[in-house]
Every structure is written in structure tokens, then in C-alpha cells.
Amino acid sequence: MRRAAVLLAVAVCLVPLLAVSNALSAGYTGSKACAECHQKEFESYSKSAKKAHSFQSIQIMASKLSPAELQECYACHTTGYGQPGGFISVEKTPQLANAGCEVCHGPGEAHAQSGDKSLIKSKLSVEQCQACHNEQRVKSFGFKPMLYGGAH
């Protein structure tokens, strides 16, 4: 009887942890889902950010690139490529075919469903931008991160 009570207590304590774990592992939803609550930011991003149309660069270059080179492009020019729930192809995941909000802020499905601000990255640093925007990748682009570039 005592053992059953201990197991029940442990189970009750683990349920909230499993819920948080599932929420954090949720997938990508696409930038249009962000627009429902963040209209001003979405409009500014859509108009001002080159990332909002980044897949066009891949389409322009695709015929000159090998499949392996294309995959390298997907890492920065799409949302969540190579991650669970991320970009697969234009046919299967068209909502992730550009570098959207979730590239910087992380997978947003759990945040969009719950509204819980702790389930999304809200404060970003230049160091985080440098995962894609670094001298090796964008030497000729004159990189200016979005947090200073006026798209938010």
C-alpha cells in the first residue's frame, strides 16, 4: 500500500514535467501563425526583411547547385530545416519555405497554441544571429541584424 502511494505521488509530480517537455519539443508553425497576435511585427518583417523572401534566392540558384549544395542553402533560407517539424520541401511544408520568425525565435507551435511566452525566445542577441549571419557566409551582404535593421 505504501509503495503504491509513493508511485502515485511520483506520477503526479511527473505529469507537469511531461507537459512542459512536450510543449518544448513541439514543431514549427510558420510566420503567418505569428501574425495572429503579432500583426505589427509580422507586417514589418514581411515588408522590410529580406529573410521573408529568402527562398527566392534558392529558386534562382537551384539549377546551378547540386543537391548537397541546395541542402546547405536550406539551413539559412528556410525555417527549421533538418529539425523535427521543420522545412522538408516546398510541396510538403510551404509555410516554412522562407526564413521566418521561428528561425530566430525557435519553434512556435506550443507558444501559438498556449500563448505562454516562456515557450518562445523573445530576447535575442547578435551572437544568435551569427549562426547564419557570419563573415564566412555573408561577407558580401553587408550584414545588419534584424534587431537593428528595423524589421521588428
Rank of each mutant, 00 (worst) to 15 (best):
S54T: 01
M1F: 12
S66F: 07
S63M: 11
N134A: 01
Y148G: 10
P16I: 03
A110G: 04
V10S: 00
P84M: 02
D116T: 03
E135Q: 09
R137A: 15
H105Q: 05
H38R: 00
K40F: 13
A35S: 09
C34N: 01
T78G: 00
G30M: 09
E102Q: 01
V126A: 11
Q128A: 13
L14G: 08
F87L: 06
P145Q: 03
C101F: 13
Q136G: 15
L119H: 05
G150N: 00
R137H: 15
K64Q: 14
L8S: 08
I120N: 06
L8G: 06
K40N: 10
C129R: 02
L96N: 04
A151C: 14
G85F: 00
K47P: 05
A5N: 07
A9H: 03
S48D: 13
A49H: 01
L119A: 02
N98L: 02
G30A: 09
R3K: 15
T93P: 06
Y81I: 04
G27K: 07
G80V: 00
G86M: 06
S114K: 09
K123E: 15
C37S: 03
A26T: 03
A110R: 08
C73H: 11
S118W: 01
V10F: 03
Q39S: 15
A52I: 00
L14P: 03
S63R: 11
L124D: 00
F55E: 07
Y74N: 02
S118Q: 07
A4W: 11
R137F: 15
C37I: 01
A68S: 12
G30R: 03
Q59F: 09
E135K: 12
H38F: 01
A99K: 08
S140W: 11
L8M: 06
